[in-house]
């Protein structure tokens, strides 16, 4: 009796997942083909790159925050989902790399003639000299920290749950990584609100 119920539950779960995938693909197809992407992404290469950078940065904050939460649980010694943490940390590292490389491209427009840098230096010099300068460097901190934490999570995947000092080390690195990620994101979003690249 219980075997039949378990089979039914598995079947229902498969049906729900299949329906969700079919609906998502269908909607993505319709929305993807009919959306005026050029309006959303901007009219220039740099504007499109800025949108892409913003998407990677936002995804980085979402995934990075989930990683940060699991990292905090790891630090406290309450974590059970080691596999989830490894996967999220890996995605965070990839997103840090993508956000930095796209950020490099939009920095060209930022420094270009009539770009935000010129505007800020002429009108609000502190925005460039203090906040942007800080943001452009602190954002780079995320990559080595995320990659090192990810490396340790994979390298010591079997021994992590038995080794308190390793858990402390990775938990601390994830906490530092999340902090610099949030500083970079908040400053980036705020500065973009004042003047975006075009």
């Amino acid at each position: 009796m219980s075997k039949i119920m378990a089979d039914e539950r598995r079947l229902l779960k498969s049906v729900v997942i299949a329906a969700w995938i079919i609906l998502t693909v269908f909607l993505a197809f319709i929305l993807g083909l009919s959306a005026p992407w050029e309006k959303l992404m901007g009219h220039s290469f740099f504007a499109s790159m800025a949108t892409t950078h913003g998407i990677f940065a936002t995804l980085g904050v979402i995934i990075g925050s989930a990683t940060g939460y699991l990292g905090w649980r790891l630090l406290l010694g309450h974590l059970k989902a080691y596999r989830d943490l490894r996967i999220l940390a890996t995605i965070s590292s990839v997103l840090a790399f993508l956000a930095i490389t796209t950020g490099n491209w939009i920095y060209i427009a930022y420094r270009g003639p009539e770009g935000p840098r010129e505007f800020f230096i002429n009108n609000f010099p502190e925005i460039h000299e203090i906040f942007f300068e800080f943001k452009e460097f602190i954002a780079l901190f995320t990559l080595p920290i995320a990659v090192a934490a990810t490396f340790i999570l994979w390298k010591y995947k079997d021994s992590l749950q038995h080794d308190q000092s390793l858990r402390n080390a990775v938990g601390m690195m994830i906490a530092v990584g999340w902090s610099v990620l949030m500083i970079a994101f908040v400053l980036g979003a705020t500065i973009t609100k004042l003047m975006a690249v075009s």
Binding site: L140, F141, P144, I145, V147, A148, F151, I152, K155, Y156, D158, S159, H162, D163, S165, L166, A169, V170, M173
Partner: peptide, 18 residues
């Protein structure tokens, strides 16, 4: 439990890069 030298190397090299 593995020797933790690899973890120390990863951590310190990230700091040196920064």
């Amino acid at each position: 439990i593995k020797k933790n030298g690899h973890a120390a190397a990863a951590m310190i090299s990230a700091m040196i890069g920064i």
